[in-house]
Design a protein around this nucleic acid. Structure first.
Lengths: 191, 191
DNA sequence: CTAGGCATGTAACGTGTTACATGATTTG
DNA sequence: CAAATCATGTAACACGTTACATGCCTAG
């Protein structure tokens, strides 16, 4: 139940149409929450039905017509409630780690190339975040809102740094690993 | 499409029944891929229908009856193919970061308590992983399979360390932040 | 023989993903 | 006015989550 709250947050920051929201998600919110335009339109419909947002009065509903939405007081209340409510952190779910565990059984053939590619993607993402940081959070800009948003961006930066380094480490392990088919020691102990 | 491959990996490590798989997921695979028993049974059915695994011959299908599965050659091939295939890393999607971004708009009231709780949960998880590391990866144990599995566990350990520290940092920011309702500077610039 | 735990499932729903469809607006 | 682009939307499906249902097996 997070997408509606991501949308409420984005709409509070600035009233927008569906496509504008999609672009803002891609550009600025995607580093902690991504969404496609289909998801966003579906959710905008629900939020409007629930009375948490409304289309700006001037627009009449029509298919190819732009519709801008703004958050109603009930929507702001709901977002505040959700933000403060206790929520358990979700367990990690990472495909790359699963692939490595699988490689321990069926062999590492072919994996290294893709991990090297991932390493570059993470490094590029990191560079992009650092650019954003320089542009949006210069030394002077440190009001309460700036500090919180900077904190969020910092998490993104540090996570990309983490993955870049971890992949470097993993790749260096690969370097002095026999390129086995994994059957060297079958039923070895796990857990 | 990762759950079937997680199951294939687990079954190659040791043929098991659905409930045994569920327990092994909880105990040992959950730090990079979690699943409920309903998901596992559904997926076991599909994998069997596709001819990637089979129930051990002795068992006849019956509702409350234990059914052990093992991986067929086609299943091993599929797992090897999947492991080596190129896959894009999934973008980050983290509720806590979203909550912080929302708090920049609607205020931080109530958030701190839950973040403190998260910090403790991550610290506890970290302690658990470190225990596993000591038990399962003593200095001598460093064959190819051990190195790969250790690498995976290391990612879990380092990520929990990361989140513990990040939350400490976030909480220290909270300490000298006015407990606003977020409306101090409404339409401030984002992206 | 019954109560509790073991083991396997069904059903319903929410969210995310992919492919495609349609109307409006601008530009050459 | 044709083509490209903007903008909104439908449909079908895959996956994950929650609640519940059913059959077996063993201890007391």
């Amino acid at each position: 139940m997070s997408l509606p709250h991501a949308i409420l947050t984005a709409l509070l920051e600035k009233p927008s149409s569906g496509l504008e929201l999609t672009r803002r998600f891609d550009k600025s919110i995607a580093y902690f929450w991504s969404a496609t335009h289909q998801q966003i339109y579906r959710e905008l419909g629900r939020l409007e039905a629930e009375g948490l947002i409304r289309a700006l009065p001037s627009e009449q509903p029509a298919r190819g017509q732009k519709r801008e939405y703004e958050v109603l007081p009930a929507g702001r209340d709901e977002l505040a409630r959700w933000t403060a409510a206790s929520q358990d952190p979700k367990p990690l779910r990472d495909v790359t780690l699963l692939r490595l565990r699988a490689a321990a059984v069926v062999g590492t053939a072919g994996l290294e190339t893709d991990l090297r590619r991932h390493r570059e993607l993470h490094a590029r993402q990191l560079a992009k975040y650092l650019e954003i940081e320089q542009r949006d959070f210069p030394p002077g800009k440190d009001g309460p809102q700036d500090r919180l948003r900077h904190l969020v961006l910092r998490a993104g930066i540090d996570l990309e740094t983490f993955w870049t380094q971890w992949l470097d480490h993993a790749l260096s392990e690969f370097a002095h690993l026999p390129d086995t088919d994994g059957t060297g020691r079958p039923g070895a102990g796990e857990d």
